[in-house]
């Protein structure tokens, strides 16, 4: 471990704000890239279910 304590780790030798801002926003953006296709897939499945129900009613 490079740092002596956890608070030193958070402080990053005075550069904490920059380091955590860079890592924080990147983590959020990467997470969005995973969540969006998952949500899209859920939507596609739901649409298909709705379509099937409609078809069953008419037939």
């Amino acid at each position: 471990m490079y740092f002596e304590s956890f608070s030193e780790f958070l402080n990053m030798g005075g550069h904490g704000l920059y380091v955590w801002m860079a890592y924080g926003l990147s983590a959020v953006l990467l997470a969005i890239n995973v969540v969006l296709p998952i949500m899209h897939k859920g939507q596609l499945v739901k649409e298909q279910a709705r379509k099937l129900r409609r078809e069953q009613k008419t037939s």
Binding site: Y2, F9, G13, Y18, V19, A22, Y23
Partner: peptide, 20 residues
């Protein structure tokens, strides 16, 4: 973030390299 040594010139801000 926690184990690599800091840069002798840039200090800990250099750790941004690992995503940049």
């Amino acid at each position: 973030l926690a184990f690599a040594p800091a840069d002798y010139q840039q200090g800990n801000s250099f750790r941004i390299i690992y995503i940049h």
